[in-house]
Design a protein around this nucleic acid. Structure first.
Length: 730
DNA sequence: TATATAGTGTTTTTT
DNA sequence: ACACTATATA
């Protein structure tokens, strides 16, 4: 029997509702994971399902691992049979079996964001996109967004405003074509391809419905449309689907997470049982009260209010600093004070911020004080250049059609194969309809190549062929060793000899050791499995709780974690909420949720800090405190007084407003430029019309109009106050 | 083809 | 401020 006596009523209801669709609205700190594992345990214990019939989908490997481990602790080794995994790894595995029907081979490569952007970059180059240069990253994120929308991507993009979307629409079918000829899928395809399979082959869908009659989804508020469609397809027949989420913690909207999925779950599954978990086991009543006073301002949310049996704690403390250095100093001072007076280990503290750039002042201050800290985030291990180089060799061995990987390492380490040589090779490949790898085997036939180029390519070909032979028989770790040594990658870094080069060699070796360790745990590990795992892996596993160091991280990374003492820093208008750039709308409700997520990480003590002036992106802007702060009743906070908004405008005056309009921070809707200093002859840029020159002025003050001659859009009259324009430096 | 310089674009990032 | 990348130059 599974022991449910420690659960509260709502939790027990969530656990005991075993049939039909269930939506568990699990507030922050409400014991969500405990409910999940209890539910699985009951399902198995009562013989309703076999462990392997349950599919549990999470967003991170860490979450899947935690689920499996805690389940193991509760019900023993059968827990290992439960299919718990991330969306991407679960469906990647499915595709390895069944993707042939879509015209891919089972050795398909999985492209990460960087690989995808390389493909797009090449497309742009091939099209010789004229004057306007669009960043591959921008286009990729649009294409990704379109794919996640589960609509026809091209139509989706055509319907979007703005010139970048048009280009993205033009490019996306070519992008898809190239992925296919590389036998590669991007992250989004890992979700879309299964959906296509299910749509085209209903029998296959039935097989999977038989295999997984029970489905469970964690962090449901973060699912995008494509994920939602997949879940729906799988669950439609048996309706045994349990989703857990918190609409108040949805902070990935900018990546396509669709709040509708949770807000309209009851519409999609009409018989759904909704359970609210509102008892919080993490924070003091003061912290919950504060957080509630902020989040309740959101309109798009399901009504709920967290409560706790915990004893009263302290009010939150506001820290108002002159600039980011003073802010950091005051935070660190407070950490030190609590560490001494309350004997708190440094592991109790987390400092959270909106953007990674904010970490610098904090790091400097902590380092000067000699306080151990760990920075979470930044460049991921497997995305480092030297690691990706090694990976590219390994990938080309597993999937010879992977042109992105081949092009990446064709001259790494430097072997004298330059741009023009590569061009001739790829032209030949394109003309004769073969892959780059095949063309490389036929260098002798390529007339255009010079003798020297030919022999270098031939040498590279021989290198690859040697590795391929090795790869056919050897273990992944042995192949990797060969790659590191035989290609000269290691030797090249050693020749460079700099400190940085040493770090890179260390990373490469660490990479190899990690692989060897994986092999020890799983002697059957294939190169393909390894590559897949590495591509779909995150670094979160490496972050260790309570290791006696202060943790620094973004608000996004903090989701799902908890700390006794939390500092939410940088509470300034334009930073939190972060003002989007003029072409991208920022969603204030999502920013508010982000703040909410930050506050609800705190168990005992919460600090809210802001700087009146902050140097960011080279410019020092004067900022007003975050409007979110004025949502908080003053009786709930101690510490520095909060300037009222009227005080701010008096004390900072015009200066503040014009600064915030022209610096990156504080630029807010309406998109109009409040810096009205336009003169005839000034060059400006308009969001839709492009660049132009001011040819006359009329009206004044708030009514100022300018006539602008655009390079490509003729002459327009614009109301400066509202027009989406900005002044270009002359 | 490799290196110096100018130019640029800067959110968040589970996969 | 700073890091990354496209362009010019040897």
């Amino acid at each position: 029997m599974v022991d449910l006596s420690e659960l509260n009523d709502a939790q027990r209801e969530a656990v005991e509702t075993l049939q039909g669709p269930v939506l568990i609205l699990a507030g922050a700190g409400s014991g969500k994971t405990r409910v999940l594992i209890s539910r699985i345990a009951v399902l198995i214990d009562r013989g309703i399902i076999r462990p392997y019939q349950l599919l549990a989908l999470t967003f991170t490997n860490k979450a899947a691992k935690e689920l499996r481990e805690r389940l193991h602790a509760m019900i023993g080794p059968v827990a290992e049979q439960v299919r718990a995994g991330t969306f991407h790894s679960t469906f990647a595995r499915l595709l390895r079996r069944d993707i042939a029907a879509l015209g891919y081979r089972d050795n398909f490569a999985i492209y990460d964001t960087d690989d995808s952007e390389r493909v797009i970059k090449r497309i742009l180059e091939d099209r010789k996109a004229p004057e306007e240069r669009f960043s591959p990253g921008r286009i990729h994120s649009l294409i990704s967004r379109a794919k996640n929308s589960a609509e026809a991507p091209e139509g989706f993009l055509r319907a979007m405003p703005g010139p970048v979307a048009k280009v993205a629409a033009d490019i996306c079918s070519e992008y898809q074509k190239r992925l296919k000829s590389n036998n590669a899928l991007d992250f989004d395809d890992l979700l879309l391809a299964p959906k296509q399979l299910f749509d085209q082959f209903p029998k296959l869908l039935e097989t999977y419905r038989d295999q997984f009659p029970y489905i469970l989804v964690d962090e449901y508020q973060d699912t995008n449309r494509a994920q939602y469609e997949l879940i729906k397809a799988l669950a439609a027949r048996d309706q045994n689907i349990c989703v857990v989420g918190d609409d108040d913690q949805s902070i990935y909207g900018w990546r396509g997470a669709d709040l509708r999925n949770i807000l309209e779950f009851e519409k999609d599954f009409p018989n759904a049982k909704v359970v609210r978990l509102e008892q919080n086991y993490r924070s003091t009543p003061q912290i919950l009260d504060l957080a509630w006073n902020v989040i309740r301002r959101n309109v798009d949310r399901k009504e709920k209010k967290l409560w706790t049996k915990k004893d009263d704690g302290d009010n939150a403390t506001v820290i108002s600093a002159m600039d980011e250095n003073e802010e950091a100093w005051r935070i660190v001072e407070e950490i030190d004070r609590l560490a001494i007076h309350e004997r708190r280990p440094y592991g109790h503290f987390a400092v959270l911020y909106r953007i990674n750039a904010q970490s610098r002042a904090l790091e400097d201050t902590l380092r000067r004080r000699g306080i151990p800290y760990e920075l979470v985030g930044g460049v991921r291990f497997y995305e480092r250049r030297e690691i990706k180089d090694v990976l590219a060799y390994l990938r080309i061995l597993d999937n010879p059609d992977d042109a992105v990987s081949l092009l990446r390492i064709i001259n790494v380490p430097k072997r004298g194969i330059g741009e023009s040589t590569v061009k001739q090779l790829s032209d030949y490949a394109a003309a004769s309809g073969m892959s780059l790898r095949e063309a490389l085997k036929k260098v002798d036939d390529i007339q255009a190549l010079k003798k020297a180029a030919k022999s270098r390519l031939a040498a590279f070909n021989a290198l690859l062929t040697g590795l391929e032979e090795e790869a056919a028989a050897a273990k992944p770790s042995v192949i990797t060793r060969q790659v590191i040594e035989k290609t000269g990658i290691r030797a090249a870094w050693e020749d460079e000899g700099s400190e940085e080069a040493h770090t890179r060699i260390d990373n490469i070796l660490e990479f190899r050791f990690a692989l060897e360790e994986m092999e020890e745990n799983n002697p059957e590990l294939t190169l393909r499995d390894f590559l897949q795992e590495v591509t779909l892996m995150t670094e979160v596993d490496e972050w260790q709780e309570d290791k006696g160091h202060v943790t620094l991280m973004t608000l996004h990374s903090a989701k799902g974690l908890e700390f006794p003492v939390v500092f939410v820093s940088g509470l300034e208008d334009g930073l939190l909420p972060l003002a989007g750039r003029e072409d991208r709308s920022s969603d204030v409700e999502e920013e508010r949720r982000l703040f909410y997520v930050g506050m609800t990480r705190a168990q005992d003590k919460l600090y809210l800090s802001f700087a009146n002036r902050r140097r960011l992106f080279g410019e020092g802007g004067v900022q007003a405190p975050s409007p979110f702060l004025s949502d908080i009743p003053t009786e709930l906070i101690d510490g520095d007084t909060l300037p009222r908004h009227s005080d701010i405008s008096i004390s900072l005056g015009e200066h503040a407003r014009s600064r915030s309009a022209s610096s990156g921070l504080g630029r807010r809707k309406p998109a109009g430029d409040s810096d009205h200093h336009y003169r005839v002859g000034d060059r400006i840029r308009h969001r839709d019309f492009g660049d132009g020159t001011v040819i006359s002025k009329s009206g004044g003050a708030d009514d100022l109009k300018i006539r602008v001659l655009f390079r490509n859009a003729g002459t327009k009259t614009l109301l400066v106050r509202v027009a989406p324009i900005k002044k270009l430096k002359s």
